[in-house]
Amino acid sequence: MPDPRPVHYRLLDAPAEAGPLADEILLAPAAREPVACLWQTAPGLVVPRTYAARPGFAAVQAEFAARGCPVHVRQSGGGVVPQGPGILNLSLAQAFSGRPLDHSEALYRHLCALIAEALAAFGIQARAQAVEGSFCDGRYNLAVPAPVRKIAGTAQVWRRVPGHAPDRHVGLVHALILVRCDPAELTARANALEAALGSARRYDAGRIETLDRLLPPASQPGFPEALEARLRETLRNGTPLPAAAPVRPPMPTP
């Protein structure tokens, strides 16, 4: 008989040596059950594979590594993002049936809703939206209002599940949450990489915000630890998305 117990995410510990690509360890176990991890890593920059294809990327990567700012290439899409102390990463992964496009927006919304639920416990209201001028901008940033500033960015990657039906995929969705950091320093790092690669793209530090600045001074000291604890609780109680593909309407008869 089917197990009547509700399914929740299994929280995994990201190995420290995995660095900014730690969440990619979720791709294999997610074929069996929904999994999640919360993690932080050393300072650096992370870019999608499209950046690695740019002329001179290897030389720029070596130059930044020599400065103590390594540039890592991730599997998911998006743009350049900084990593380091005060930035909390949250990743979810689970298996789905059907085309990735049948699930990708729902997976983004699900991740944003989990984070927004945790933030609401601290009186921070956030919603998914684009924030023009922020690094790695997208429709599924999390942002705070008045004025609109980005407090988290998201990205996805999808992989076929070996040995299963061709339409069985694992979807991994990731959020980079700006908890306690310096928007000007993060933005300067991202702009320096764009400049070194000969890109005209530049980002505006005023379009992002770090969460601790949204709190009263008395609530700031223990906030990073309190937020991580709240996110862990949210994940333990959260229900993953349905794995089945949504039913698409039949094609009209000519």
Rank of each mutant, 00 (worst) to 15 (best):
L26C: 01
G238W: 05
P20A: 13
D13T: 15
F96E: 06
V7Y: 05
Y9D: 07
A229M: 08
P249F: 10
K150M: 12
R236T: 10
Q94L: 07
P34F: 03
M251I: 08
A205W: 11
A14W: 02
L197Q: 05
K150E: 12
A175V: 07
L241G: 13
L26E: 04
F57A: 09
P70F: 07
R67A: 07
E209H: 14
P183D: 14
M251Y: 13
L27F: 07
C136S: 12
D137H: 04
R109L: 15
P217M: 08
E225L: 14
T41P: 07
V73I: 14
A146W: 03
A146K: 12
F64R: 00
H174A: 01
A42P: 06
Q61E: 06
G44F: 12
S134Q: 11
F122S: 05
E228M: 10
R236D: 10
P100L: 02
V80K: 01
P250C: 02
A143H: 01
V173Y: 02
H110R: 14
L211V: 08
R127A: 13
Q156D: 07
L114I: 05
P6M: 12
V80W: 02
Y203F: 15
R139F: 04
L88C: 03
L193M: 04
R180K: 14
A36Q: 08
V46F: 03
A243Y: 02
L142N: 12
A113N: 00
A188Y: 03
G44R: 10
R49V: 10
A28D: 13
Q61D: 02
F223G: 10
V157A: 15
A175M: 06
E225A: 15
G44Y: 11
S76P: 05
V81F: 00
K150Y: 13
G78E: 03
I151W: 01
G153A: 14
L214T: 09
L227C: 11
G78A: 04
R168F: 09
A106Y: 00
V73Y: 11
G77W: 06
R139L: 12
F122Q: 04
A113Q: 13
R149V: 05
R248Y: 03
G79P: 03
H72W: 15
I115A: 01
L38V: 06
V46A: 14
V7G: 06
A126E: 04
N141S: 14
A18V: 02
V247I: 13
N89C: 12
I177A: 05
A28N: 04
P240D: 08
D23V: 01
L21E: 06
R213F: 01
A62Y: 01
V81Y: 00
F135H: 13
N89F: 08
